[in-house]
Computed example of a mutant assay.
Amino acid sequence: MPAANPLRRRTAALAVLLLAAAGCAPQDDTDIARPTGGPAAAAHACAKGRLLTRAPGKLTVGTDKPAYAPWFQDDDPTSGKGFESAVAYAVADRLGYARSDVTWQTVPFNSSVAPGAKKFDFDINQISISDERRRAVDFSSGYYDVRQAVIALKDSPAAGARSMAGLRHARLGAQVGTTSLDVVNDVIKPDRKPSVFQKNDHAKTALKNGQVDAIVVDLPTAFYITSAEVPEARIVGQFDSTAGKAEQFGLVLDKGSRITGCVSDAVDSLRKDGTLARLEKKWLSEAADAPVLK
């Protein structure tokens, strides 16, 4: 009998190894996450109330505890009161889930944006969209454009300002290199040079010590300062979104989530029809007493 061809033996052995590797390799389930077949298939993947969520027929939403006002009211995300609670239920509604189909999970801020599997379908917790965070998680489209705000001590003349004109004679301060300082210089345009600080902590100290009449910070920071750090201060008002690429909050999803596109579509529709603007006005302007300064 002629000797077996060495090339044929090697080829056969390689085929066996490849078959074995294919049988042992973990299967990639991302095909489920990214439907093919055009718009009809994509629409089917986003069918109302039928997303591939953690629990069939349910939508699990995460946020931190305590859940601060005005984002949530009375530390109760389930109430639908407060801007982010209202946004979460509005998104759920667009996705086809009734309020009774929404369940909430307590998720610390750092855990929500850390690598690894999540115990929520999406998380809402004033989380800014950034390229660095995108390496670990998915983000929806932005549901809130971060605005700038003015805070002043309650007994300061600046606290009574109802327009930008009422701030032009005030001694203003802001952190160096921030959008806040840009707003002072380019939007308010005070008639005296503003005080510039290396950190917001220094600006807060100057405010408490009466070295400035008011400081400009982003609105989420203003809510925290006036509620937890300098309760003797109040928010005088906020400004319209500034030109350029605004900082945005986004809903956080697991990296490669099968529902990221559907959730983004829901957020986009809420922005397009004015729902987000109405909720922002209700919970972040009127309820939180932070009027827009003109």
Rank of each mutant, 00 (worst) to 15 (best):
F120M: 03
F122D: 00
I124S: 11
N125Y: 03
Q126Y: 06
I127Y: 02
I127M: 08
S128Q: 07
S128V: 06
S128E: 12
S128A: 13
S128K: 11
I129N: 10
I129D: 10
D131M: 09
D131K: 12
E132K: 12
E132I: 04
R133E: 01
R133K: 13
R134Q: 06
R135P: 08
R135V: 04
A136P: 05
A136V: 08
A136W: 01
V137A: 10
D138N: 13
D138R: 04
D138I: 05
F139Q: 03
F139T: 00
F139D: 09
F139H: 04
S140I: 01
G142K: 04
G142P: 09
Y143E: 01
Y143Q: 10
Y144W: 10
Y144G: 01
D145C: 07
D145E: 14
D145I: 00
V146P: 12
V146R: 10
V146L: 10
R147A: 12
R147I: 03
Q148V: 01
Q148R: 09
V150W: 07
I151M: 03
A152V: 05
L153M: 15
K154F: 09
K154H: 06
D155A: 13
P157H: 00
A159K: 10
A159E: 07
G160V: 01
A161Q: 02
S163P: 12
S163R: 13
M164N: 12
A165M: 04
L167E: 11
R168I: 06
A170D: 04
R171E: 15
G173T: 03
V176C: 02
V176Y: 08
G177C: 07
T178A: 11
T179S: 10
L181I: 06
L181C: 00
L181Y: 04
D182C: 02
V184S: 11
N185A: 12
N185G: 10
D186N: 15
D186P: 14
V187W: 02
I188E: 08
K189P: 00
P190H: 10
D191Y: 15
D191C: 14
D191R: 15
D191I: 13
R192F: 12
R192D: 14
R192Y: 11
K193E: 05
P194Q: 02
S195Q: 02
S195N: 06
V196E: 11
V196Q: 14
V196H: 00
F197D: 08
F197P: 02
Q198L: 13
A203H: 04
T205N: 12
T205Y: 05
A206N: 02
L207M: 08
L207N: 09
L207V: 05
L207G: 11
L207P: 08
K208G: 07
G210T: 01
G210I: 06
G210R: 10
D213T: 13
A214S: 11
A214W: 02
I215A: 05
V216N: 04
V216D: 03
V216F: 09
V216I: 14
V216Q: 03
V217S: 05
D218K: 09
